[in-house]
């Protein structure tokens, strides 16, 4: 967004260029000629380094697919004739010297080349498309380093809007997102997907098994909610309870079990044991791992004597 703002400002502050050529982009030199209509004004003196785009794939001019400035911003004849006029397409979401182009027009410019891509197949009608998220809301096209495409810096870009998750990744139990080892895009496809919550895979379980294949089974003794949705018990962005649990045993187990063994027994301060004020011997059913002191294979057991997920 800031990028868009600055780009917008930059365009406003420079002397207009001569009239644009209309020749299609072909050889690298042709492409550069076309760019020069813009770069003769929008040069190294820009506050935001416009020319750094040449370090990115969008600036690799020998690739015949590489766009010129006009491919994205339009011919912008009015802008070229007078710097008081805005370019045809101005990227960003914040106001600058000129109003930004409508999001659909900005995105149309990008999708001209990027729509027919397997990762963007589901863009139309996706959550981000419906919420008027612009490509430039996340991508800094002119920057040598596009933060959203770097595992270490990507989360900060996503957290610009997803602020609950920004707080959740700081919780006691978390995926190594803040540490730069897991990126949002490892699990989510922001450009749309067939899965829920923009997941990269078709289902929650498939997405989790990408890294946690040991949970995939199939096991001899399955735990039904595990086979359906990991988020029945886990909260992936962060939790106060290790490991990424919504709640802790025995309370977590009691959300689905009441009757067999001790699952129907009320528990409170006795779970804190002697140090919690209990004057009798604490029970292994409620303290520490509680149910999982014995029923430890909650993701499924492959032991022929493990129906109760004991072994």
């Amino acid at each position: 967004m800031l990028c868009g703002l600055l780009i917008g400002s930059a365009y406003a502050e420079n002397t207009p260029a001569p009239a644009a050529k209309s020749a299609p982009v072909g050889k690298a030199s042709d492409a550069l000629d076309k760019d020069s209509e813009c770069t003769r004004c929008h040069d190294e003196n820009e506050k935001k380094p416009i020319l750094a785009i040449y370090q990115t794939p969008h600036g690799n001019k020998a690739d015949s697919r590489t766009p010129s400035c006009q491919s994205c911003h339009g011919d912008s004849a009015k802008h070229i004739s007078s710097k008081t006029n805005a370019p045809d397409v101005l990227f960003g979401t914040k106001k600058g010297a000129f109003p930004m182009s409508e999001v659909k027009d900005q995105n149309k410019s990008c999708l001209t080349c990027h729509e027919k891509d397997p990762k963007r197949t589901h863009w139309q009608g996706s959550a981000h498309q419906a919420a008027d998220v612009a490509c430039s809301s996340c991508h800094e096209t002119h920057a040598a380093h596009d933060k959203v495409r770097d595992k270490k810096t990507q989360p900060d870009v996503c957290f610009t809007c997803h602020k609950d998750q920004r707080a959740q990744v700081k919780k006691f139990s978390h995926h190594p997102i803040g540490e730069g080892k897991v990126a949002c895009s490892d699990c989510h496809n922001p450009h749309g997907s067939a899965g829920s919550k923009l997941l990269v895979k078709n289902t929650v379980t498939e997405t989790c098994y990408t890294c946690h294949a040991e949970k995939r089974g199939p096991f001899l003794w399955e735990h039904q909610p595990v086979t359906e949705d990991c988020t029945n018990c886990h909260t992936p962005h962060g939790s106060n309870i290790t490991p990424l649990l919504k709640s802790r045993a025995p309370f977590l187990c009691q959300e689905c079990h009441d009757g067999s063994h001790q699952s129907g027994t009320p528990v409170a301060g006795n779970a804190a044991g002697t140090q919690g004020g209990l004057t009798t011997v604490p029970s292994e059913n409620f303290t520490g791992r509680a149910c999982m002191n014995c029923h430890s294979l909650v993701h499924g057991s492959n032991h022929p004597a493990g129906a109760l997920l004991h072994r």
């Binding site: 106060n240 802790r248 528990v267 409170a268 006795n270 004020g277």
Partner: peptide, 28 residues
């Protein structure tokens, strides 16, 4: 961050449940 559990046993043994020998009701 805090996570707090509280258990209530409204029936007859409610008093006993809060004794130090059981602690099966009240706040953890």
């Amino acid at each position: 961050d805090s996570s707090a559990y509280s258990t209530q046993i409204p029936y007859g043994t409610a008093t006993a449940c809060g004794s130090s020998a059981s602690l099966t009701c009240g706040s953890l």
